[in-house]
Amino acid sequence: MIPLSHYMLISAALFSIGIYAVLSKRNAIMILIGIEFMLNAAILNFVAFSKHDKFAASGQVFALFAIVLAAAAVAVSLAIILNVYKYYKTIDPTKIDKLRD
């Protein structure tokens, strides 16, 4: 059986990769992919931990809900990014800065 710590290491690595992508990428879609990495790290954690839960349910239920909500959030974000492209002809967040002090 794979020990719990291996799952946690993989999810920590996934989470770090996701954070790195969010902070360094110059493309809104790549940032979304980074966010997906972070979400999946959390979902992996939930599923792994739920094996040791007495009812073995709450972690897995949580994972299911998280997957659905992540899909909803990504759909909305993609529509918004498409709209941004229509006005700015770029999706580089550093170049989109009309709102400022």
Binding site: I31, G34, L39, N83, Y87
Partner: peptide, 18 residues
Amino acid sequence: KQTEASMKYALFGSACSA
């Protein structure tokens, strides 16, 4: 400007909730 605001909000919000 409005699309810019919504993109910043959506990306920052999704990252925070992740």
